[in-house]
Design a protein around this nucleic acid. Structure first.
Length: 475
RNA sequence: CGAGGAGUAGCGCAGUUUGGUAGCGCGCUUGGUUCGGGACCAAGAGGUCGUGGGUUCAAAUCCCGUCUCCUCGACCA
C-alpha cells in the first residue's frame, strides 16, 4: 500500500497541476518519448496504436463519403508558398526551410510542408480541365512541420501526424456545403469514436486559416475548462484556385476557376482524448480507439490450469472481435492492476482458481472503477460492457461540458467565467477591436461562433451583437 | 525573446551552506519463495556529478564562463 501511494504520487495531481499531470501520463504510460530535436516527439507503439485506430475509423468514414487517399511530397518549392499572399504571411514564421542538398546550396529553397494547400493546388491545376473532373476529393495521411515556440506532446509538436483532405468543386455553394459536411463528419467521429463532445462552429476572422474565406472548427473542453481546437475545415473560395490556376471548362463552355476547401485532424486528437477523459489514476481510453480493449489478469497464475483458462478466454474474446491480451508477466496481480489502469485499458478481467471453479470472471471497468461478475467466456457480455463504457464516457463528458458553459453580458462576467474554468457564451459585435480587448482583459479567445445567434449585446462594447461566440482560454 | 527553476546511475532524488573514499529509493540481472490491489529474501551490474577553465595537497561542493532542459508569458492543428 505504501508503495502504491509512492507510485501514484509519481503522477502530478490532476486537480491542482493539470498540465504536469498530462505530461506525466503521456510519458509514464509510454505513449511517447521526447525526440532529440526540441519540440519533436517519438510516438511509441502504445501511442501509435491509438493513432492507427483513429486512422482506420476515420478512413472508413472518408471512404463512405467518397473521399480517396493519395500522397503528395514533403518538400514544397518556396515559390509555391508565396503564391497566395495571406497564406505565406500566416505560415512564414513557422516554416522550416531546406537550403542545402546533395552537397551544395539549392537554387530555390524548399519548404518542409506546414500544410499542403500549395503543392496540392499546383497538382490540381494540372489535373482539373473539365467540369467532368469535378468534384475532386482527395485526402492524405502524412506528417507536417511547424516550428512552434513552445511544445507539448500531442498537443503541439514541431512535427505532427495528420490527415489533410483537399477538394475542388465547380461552385462555391458545393464547396461550402462540403466544408460543413466534413465538420459534421468530425463531430460525429468525435462523439462516436472518441466519446468526446465538442462545440462546432465558424471561426472569427482573427482565428481563421491563412488564406481561407471561412474556417470552421471543433473545440473540446479539457478537464481544467480550457479549450482545445481539435479539428478544422476551411472554405477557400477561389483564393487557391486562382493562385494555382485550378481552371475547368464548364458545361456552358466557359473557362472557370474551381472552388476549394480543406479539412484536417491531427495527433492532437490523442491529446484531446487524454485530457478529456483522464483521471487521477491515469488514462481512460475510449474503447473504439484503445489499443487494448480488454486485459486479462490471471490470479495465482502458477497454479495448474489458470493460464490455460486465461488463454482460452483470450481466444474466445479475440474471435469475437475484441482487442485483448493476457498479462502473464511475473509481476504481482496488484502491480498489473495499477499498470493497466494507468494505461487506460477500458476493461480488465481477473481470472483465478475461484472464478474458474465457479464458471465466472470478474470484470473491472476503468471509467467508473466498478467490478462486476460475468459468466466465464461470455464475449457478448464483454462487448456490451465496452459499448456501455463508450456511451457512459460520452455522457459524462457532455454533462460536464454543458454545466460549464456560462453566459456573460459584461467583460467582468466573462473574466470570472473563464477564471472558473468555463466556456463563456457571449454576444459580440463583430469588431476585431472588441475581440482583441477580450483577449487582453480575460486571456480568452473566441473559439467558435454559435449557430444560435441569440445573445443581444456585445460583451465588450455593449452595442448590438452580430454573433454569439464561445470564449475560452485555449491550449 | 521576458520571468522563474533544474542539470549527480535507466527514472526520481539526497549530498553543495562548512571542500576530504559517489549515496538512497524505484527499475534492471540471477536464484528462490510468492500471487484476489504496486510481495519478500539473497546475491549482482550500473555514474569521468552537463561542459570549459580557475583556486587548492584535494572540487559534485568554492570562483568565472558556457551549453542544455523544464515551467509560466507573446505565436499556433
Amino acid at each position: 500500500m505504501a508503495k502504491n501511494e509512492q507510485f501514484v504520487s509519481q503522477i502530478a495531481d490532476i486537480e491542482t497541476d493539470f498540465p504536469q499531470w498530462y505530461t506525466d501520463v503521456v510519458l509514464k504510460t509510454k505513449l511517447v518519448d521526447y525526440g532529440p530535436v526540441k519540440g519533436t516527439m517519438v510516438i511509441r507503439p502504445y501511442g501509435y496504436a491509438i493513432w492507427e485506430n483513429i486512422q482506420r475509423e476515420m478512413d472508413a468514414r472518408f471512404k463512405a463519403a467518397g473521399v480517396e487517399n493519395a500522397y503528395f511530397p514533403l518538400l514544397i518549392p518556396m515559390s509555391f508558398m508565396t503564391k497566395e499572399a495571406e497564406h505565406v504571411e500566416g505560415f512564414a514564421p513557422e516554416v522550416a526551410v531546406v537550403t542545402h542538398a546533395g552537397g551544395g546550396k539549392l537554387e530555390e529553397p524548399l519548404v518542409v510542408r506546414p500544410t499542403s494547400e500549395t503543392i496540392i493546388g499546383h497538382m490540381y491545376g494540372k489535373w482539373v480541365e473539365s467540369w467532368r473532373d469535378l468534384p475532386l476529393r482527395l485526402n492524405q495521411w502524412c506528417n507536417v512541420m511547424r516550428w512552434e515556440k513552445t511544445t507539448r506532446p500531442f498537443l503541439r509538436t514541431s512535427e505532427f501526424l495528420w490527415q489533410e483532405g483537399h477538394s475542388v468543386y465547380a461552385t462555391g455553394e458545393e464547396a461550402e456545403e462540403e466544408t460543413l459536411k466534413m465538420l459534421a463528419l468530425y463531430e460525429d467521429f468525435s462523439k462516436n469514436v472518441l466519446c468526446m463532445p465538442v462545440l462546432t462552429g465558424r471561426k472569427t476572422e482573427k482565428e481563421k486559416f491563412a488564406g481561407a474565406v471561412a474556417t470552421y472548427g471543433m473545440e473540446a473542453m479539457m478537464h481544467d475548462g480550457k479549450s482545445l481546437q481539435s479539428g478544422t475545415t476551411h472554405y477557400m473560395g477561389q483564393n487557391f484556385a486562382k493562385a494555382f490556376g485550378v481552371q475547368f471548362t464548364d458545361k456552358d463552355g466557359a473557362l472557370k476557376y474551381g472552388y476549394t476547401m480543406s479539412y484536417g485532424v491531427s495527433t492532437r486528437l490523442i491529446g484531446a482524448v487524454i485530457m478529456t477523459h483522464g483521471d487521477a489514476r491515469g488514462l481512460i481510453l475510449p474503447p473504439p480507439v484503445a489499443p487494448l480493449q480488454v486485459v486479462i489478469v490471471p490470479i495465482a497464475q502458477k497454479k495448474e490450469g489458470v493460464l490455460d483458462a486465461t488463454h482460452v478466454l483470450e481466444r474466445t474474446l479475440r474471435e469475437a472481435g475484441i482487442r485483448v491480451k493476457t498479462d502473464d508477466s511475473d509481476n504481482s496481480p496488484g502491480w498489473k492492476f495499477n499498470e493497466w489502469e494507468m494505461k487506460g485499458v477500458p476493461v480488465r478481467i481477473e481470472l483465478g482458481p475461484r472464478d474458474i471453479e465457479g464458471g465466472k470472471m470478474l470484470a473491472f471497468r476503468r471509467d467508473t472503477c466498478e467490478k462486476t461478475e460475468l459468466a466465464l467466456g461470455d464475449a457478448e457480455a464483454v462487448k456490451a460492457l465496452l459499448s456501455d463504457i463508450s456511451s457512459a464516457m460520452y455522457e459524462r463528458a457532455l454533462a460536464r461540458m454543458r454545466e460549464r458553459i456560462v453566459p456573460a453580458s459584461t467583460l467582468e462576467e466573462l473574466l470570472s467565467g473563464v477564471n472558473g474554468g468555463n466556456f463563456v457564451r457571449a454576444g459580440w459585435c463583430g469588431e476585431r477591436a472588441c475581440e482583441d480587448r477580450v483577449k487582453e482583459f480575460a486571456q480568452a479567445t473566441a473559439r467558435v461562433m454559435d449557430g444560435n445567434n441569440d445573445m443581444p449585446v456585445c460583451v465588450c462594447c455593449g452595442k448590438k451583437a452580430q454573433h454569439t461566440v464561445f470564449f475560452a482560454r485555449a491550449y
